[in-house]
């Protein structure tokens, strides 16, 4: 293993990985990761608007993972399965800007709904995303954790690019979901023409 450290280091450098984390998230760990991300961004990013966008996306991703894992751990303990609460977060900074990757196992039965949701968001322009956000905020029903589908819309708005995603089947009941939220290096307006509401 010790001989592989250089290779690992080399890979992380080549892929411009700012941060990578695997394991179970706790509220304390989320705070620590966000603190680390904020400090790293102070050095890597001059534009405050981009810094804030990256921070926001990382925060929403971590919260998504956290709530998803909690939900899954609860389901696992009641069904007798052991494996809940794991996930991966990777933040990379390259020529395309910042990429916030997350990955987690999820129930196969929930894949179709999530895929439809992501495709819907990817089919929306900035103004449509804004309207969708406002409608969901005003009319949406919310889970006890407060989610209710705003997180993905918010990420799509801040990204300004399509959400990249993948599903890899793990077994009959479980699928690994991966998401990349890419944030452009330069400041992009959330929507093209500013107008008063």
């Amino acid at each position: 293993m010790v001989n592989r450290i250089f290779d690992l280091y080399d890979d992380l450098e080549k892929d411009r990985i700012m941060l990578s984390f695997t394991g179970a998230l706790s509220t304390g760990l989320i705070a620590a990761i966000l603190n680390l991300v904020e400090r790293k961004l102070e050095h890597s990013e001059h534009a405050p608007a981009v810094r804030k966008r990256v921070f926001n996306v990382v925060m929403e991703c971590l919260h998504n993972l956290f709530h998803h894992n909690k939900h899954r751990a609860a389901a696992d303990s009641s069904s007798g399965h052991g494996e809940g609460g794991q996930g991966v977060v990777v933040i990379a900074h390259d020529g395309r800007g910042y990429s916030v990757f997350t990955g987690n196992a999820m129930a196969q039965s929930e894949v179709d709904a999530l895929k439809q949701r992501l495709d819907l968001l990817n089919g929306c322009g900035p103004d449509e995303l804004r309207e969708l956000y406002k409608n969901t905020l005003n009319n949406g029903t919310f889970s006890p954790s407060g989610g209710g589908g705003l997180g993905l819309i918010d990420m799509a708005r801040r990204s300004g690019r399509k959400l990249e995603y993948g599903f890899i089947p793990l077994d009959n009941n479980n699928t690994f979901f991966s998401l990349n939220v890419n944030i452009a290096p330069k400041n992009h307006p959330l929507h093209h023409e500013r107008h008063s509401p």
Partner: peptide, 18 residues
């Protein structure tokens, strides 16, 4: 909202619209 923080301005406008 902070200078350059268009996102925070838009968030305020979103509330204003609702």
């Amino acid at each position: 909202y902070e200078v350059d923080d268009e996102d925070m301005l838009e968030a305020g406008e979103d509330y204003q619209a609702i």
